[in-house]
Structure formats: C-alpha cells, structure tokens
C-alpha cells in the first residue's frame, strides 16, 4: 500500500520512518500530527543545545578575557569587581577565563569517552548479537562481569596505577564505560534480528557483513544515540569527581574539578573560588541532561 505521506518538515524523518509500522504510517490523525510537531520541537531543542555547548567549548578560550594561567589582578577579588566577572582566585587569576578553558576540557573529555564507549561497546555488542552462539555467550559474560563491578571505583584504581593525568583518566573511564553500551547494542541487535525485514535481507542473499552494516547497525542507531546523549551528563560528573580527587592534569591546568578541590580551604572567606567551577560543571551536566531528554522525546516511537 503506497500512499504519499503528508509533508512535515522533520530533521529526524529518516529515523522516525524507520520505526514507524506500515499501518500507522500514512494515516495521520490530528493528535498524531500535533505530537509529531512536539517531537519536531524537541529535536530542534536537542540539536540547538548540543550545538550551543559545543560552540561554547570551542570558542571558550577566544572569549576568555585573560590568560587562564597568568595572574591578571589582585587576589581574591569578588565577582563583578576589578573587571573579573566571576572574581579572581588565590593568586589573582581570572576565574571566568579558567572556567571557560575548563569547560572545553570537560565537554570534549566527556564526548571522547562516550565516543570510545559507543565504538568499543557497539563493536562487542554487534559481534555478540549478530554472531550468537558461543561468541555471544563469552562476550556477554565478560560484559556482565564488568557491569557488576562499581565502574567509577575501578576507574580510580586504574588511574592510580597508571599515574595521574588527564589522558590516563580518560583511558580508565573508557575502560569501565563500554560494557554498558555493549549490553544495549546487543539487545537491540537481537531484537532486530527477529524482524521480518532482516529475514527478507537474509533470504535475498545479503552477506553477513552487509547485514551488520546495512541493516543491524542503522536499526540500533537511535537507541544508541539516545542512551549516549542521556549518559553525557553522568560522564561529566564522573570525570569531574576524578579530577577533584587529583587524578587529572597537574597543578596549574584549568580543570574544573581540580579547581574546586585545590581551593577548598578558601571556601569560607572567598566562596567564589571553589564554587564557580563547581557551578560550571553543574550547568554543563544540567544542559547535557536536558539535551538527552529532548532527544529521547524526539526519537520516541511515534
């Protein structure tokens, strides 16, 4: 039954069409149309927020009024005084500039770890789900064992063994982060494999490789994207916690978690020095959680 679909401007159209069952597709009732508009708006919000955060992370250093490492005025200047919007720290460096640099590190670190988690986990999950049999059994048992361990605690031990540095922190968190994605991708792939269009592709003689890359992977993509976007906030907080414990870059580097930790002793006399970086992390995590929520609403089956 081929009926022309009514035109609705929709950036996520392909993803949604993928999900839509043939029966409900062509007939758009009034309420469905308005819910489509809602998912549309959610998609634009998610895209907008994500772009805004990335632009802030890229352009942050250019926006910074001072150097993040060199003192620019009197120490402990309160916010809004002496040209320091967020105040100055214990040796007179501009908090705003340091926070802007820190946001860049936090944002791209989180995205990097998510990407590695999706890549490794996706590969393991895809292999396990598509191959089945003993390979599936072995890979998933391994995944479950890692999922059953407290990831952040394990990450602390990994960085402590490798020696504190930002790179080691990212590696450690990457190591404990992938099993979650392996589980999700494998689940998606297994449920997709039972669907008729996969059966049809198999019958038409598609190779294993093309089944995986053409049919299974695109099918699992929406679930991965939603999960990953809901996970960015978590990851920002975890990385900030490790940085707070002194597992990130060494001293003068403007890292948000470490900035809060190193200035803990100034809390009662100059609250802004440790609090401003903590608020920056809160904002980053909050906005990424909102992005994830919007994206989930946008990609929810219509």
């Amino acid at each position: 039954m081929a009926v022309a679909e009514p035109y609705v401007p929709d950036p996520l159209g392909p993803a949604r069409r993928f999900f839509r069952s043939p029966q409900s597709g062509p007939r758009l009732s009034g309420s469905l149309r308005s819910s489509l508009r809602d998912t549309n708006r959610a998609a634009w919000y998610a895209g907008g927020l994500f772009t805004a955060l990335t632009v802030l992370a890229v352009a942050g250093p250019a926006l910074a009024p001072h150097s993040p490492l060199v003192p620019a005025g009197a120490a402990f200047t309160p916010p809004g005084h002496g040209g320091f919007l967020l105040g100055s720290d214990s040796i007179g460096r501009d908090e705003l500039s340091r926070v802007l640099y820190g946001i860049r590190t936090s944002w791209f670190s989180a995205l990097g770890v998510i990407a590695s988690g999706v890549l490794i986990g996706g590969l393991v999950g895809l292999l396990a789900g598509a191959a089945g049999g003993w390979l599936d059994e072995v890979l998933m048992r391994l995944t479950d064992a890692f999922l059953a361990l407290p990831g952040p605690v394990l990450a602390i031990a990994v960085v402590a063994a490798l020696g504190p540095s930002l790179l080691h922190t990212l590696v450690a968190v990457g190591i404990v982060w992938w099993p979650f994605y392996a589980r999700i991708v494998r689940g998606e792939v297994r449920s997709l494999a039972a669907r008729p269009h996969l059966e049809a592709a198999r019958l038409s003689g598609a190779s294993r490789w093309s089944l995986m890359t053409r049919h299974l992977l695109p099918g699992a993509a929406p679930a991965i994207v939603v999960t990953a976007s809901l996970d960015v906030g978590n990851l920002i907080l975890t990385l900030a916690g490790l940085s707070f414990l002194g597992l990130g870059s060494p001293a003068p580097a403007p890292e948000l978690g470490a900035m809060a930790a190193r200035n803990l002793s100034y809390l009662l006399q100059s609250w802004w020095v440790p609090i401003m970086p903590a608020i920056a992390i809160f904002m980053l995590a909050f906005l990424s959680n909102m992005t994830g929520d919007f994206l989930r609403d946008a990609l929810r089956d219509t």
Partner: peptide
C-alpha cells in the same frame, strides 16, 4: 530532580558547608 541529578557532589557539599 533533573537539577539534583546534574549537581556534582562537591557542589552540594560546598554549598551545604557554606
């Protein structure tokens, strides 16, 4: 609740102490 889930532990702790 979304705010609570987005707040780093140390922000809550520092604000509490303050």
């Amino acid at each position: 609740m979304v705010s609570g889930a987005s707040a780093p532990l140390f922000l809550l702790a520092l604000l509490g102490i303050l």
